[in-house]
Simulated scan of single mutants.
Amino acid sequence: MDLMALRRGWGTRPLVGAAVGVLLQDERGRVLLQRRGDDGRWSEPGGALNPGEDFLSGARRELHEETGLHCDNLRLLPLPDGLQSGPELYHRYPHGDEIYVVGLRAHGTLPAAALERAQPDDSGETLELRWFELAHLPDLSSNANRASMNLLRAWAGLPPLLLAPTPPPPPPGDFLRALRRVIGPRPWAAPGASVLVTNDQGRLLLLRHGHTRRWTLPGGFLEPGESFEQTAARELQEETGLRARALEPLEMFAGPQYRFTYPNGDVVDNVSVLYRAQDVTGDLVPQPGEVLDVGWFGVNELPAADALSGPLVQAQVDWWHRAQPKG
């Protein structure tokens, strides 16, 4: 389902948009910005992921579409620097559509002369391309762009730009369920977070989920205006009654291999940050109806792959397994 068709049913209400920003710098540390066709302001290249697309593929595609350039050393920034999410990344487009940008940033370098061979596509998204000194940036299009520039400015020892004020996020609700009433079972890039919780014996907490009846990690999907970390904390408390003093981001999981079809036929393209819970407190109380059972599993006691709730959970549990001391 394309975005225009979705907006006809959803209206201008906020969506959570999984997107990638591309930060390119030249040999002088200048950043490449595009003047946008929708508002005439400046932003880094980037945009929404296509269904089933991973972030690096999306970064390369968006860079080529909006500039005609390729960058051989383009890479995703490590967490937490690479993460984009939170209520401050709200944006209202000139036609009124609202969105919360979530996702990752990519970074690479090109010589300044590469701009001479730039050839944006004919979509009208890019009106102009130019290198800018980080100390002398133009009028930026959104807080997502300001946050990205602040990352580069911090690397250069420059003070941060002020973010524009944003409206309060909508009250928490079941965003994805409401969205399903518009899109039906079609695939949707669903940003979310999962949490690794271990006990004093080093065993991993898994939950048997009420919808799939298979084992999963505490976690769930973002509500509009939430950060990945806020989602991780909320889902941990809702599903288990536990709280963590800190949540350490470990890795982003996104791409076609993490598509999952629920028993009711709904298809999600998972875009999920895996966190490690630190200094966990509270009593383990499973969420009624949502969690059928809980279990603590050692490295050699994990459920079989087909007993885990889909490829995302399998990959995240495998990540934990590989991270355990050997011997």
Score class of each variant (00 low, 15 high):
residue 214 R to V: 02
residue 175 F to C: 03
residue 165 P to Q: 05
residue 172 P to N: 11
residue 268 V to C: 11
residue 264 N to A: 12
residue 227 S to L: 09
residue 185 P to F: 11
residue 168 P to N: 06
residue 176 L to G: 10
residue 279 D to N: 13
residue 188 W to S: 08
residue 262 Y to S: 15
residue 155 W to D: 05
residue 201 Q to N: 03
residue 186 R to F: 07
residue 190 A to N: 14
residue 201 Q to H: 09
residue 179 L to T: 12
residue 200 D to S: 13
residue 271 V to G: 00
residue 226 E to G: 10
residue 162 L to C: 01
residue 225 G to L: 02
residue 211 H to R: 04
residue 218 P to L: 05
residue 230 Q to L: 09
residue 158 L to C: 01
residue 184 G to S: 12
residue 230 Q to G: 14
residue 281 T to A: 05
residue 271 V to K: 06
residue 217 L to A: 01
residue 248 E to V: 14
residue 155 W to F: 02
residue 275 Y to I: 14
residue 250 L to P: 10
residue 257 Q to D: 15
residue 193 A to S: 15
residue 274 L to D: 13
residue 183 I to V: 15
residue 190 A to K: 12
residue 267 V to W: 07
residue 198 T to E: 15
residue 259 R to Y: 03
residue 171 P to N: 04
residue 199 N to S: 06
residue 171 P to R: 03
residue 225 G to N: 11
residue 239 E to D: 10
residue 203 R to C: 04
residue 183 I to F: 04
residue 216 T to S: 11
residue 277 A to T: 15
residue 227 S to D: 09
residue 186 R to Q: 15
residue 252 M to L: 10
residue 170 P to C: 05
residue 276 R to T: 14
residue 262 Y to K: 11
residue 210 G to Y: 00
residue 204 L to Y: 01
residue 223 E to D: 11
residue 253 F to Y: 09
residue 232 A to F: 03
residue 224 P to S: 07
residue 250 L to D: 07
residue 187 P to Q: 11
residue 260 F to M: 09
residue 211 H to I: 09
residue 173 G to P: 13
residue 240 T to S: 04
residue 169 P to G: 12
residue 251 E to R: 14
residue 200 D to W: 03
residue 267 V to F: 07
residue 229 E to Q: 13
residue 162 L to H: 04
residue 189 A to F: 10
residue 219 G to N: 05
residue 238 E to R: 06
residue 199 N to H: 04
residue 238 E to C: 01
residue 216 T to Q: 05
residue 155 W to E: 07
residue 241 G to W: 02
residue 259 R to Q: 15
residue 166 T to E: 07
residue 237 Q to L: 12
residue 261 T to F: 09
residue 173 G to V: 09
residue 161 L to K: 01
residue 216 T to A: 06
residue 157 G to K: 00
residue 244 A to V: 10
residue 220 G to F: 04
residue 193 A to Y: 01
residue 235 E to M: 04
residue 251 E to K: 12
residue 203 R to L: 00
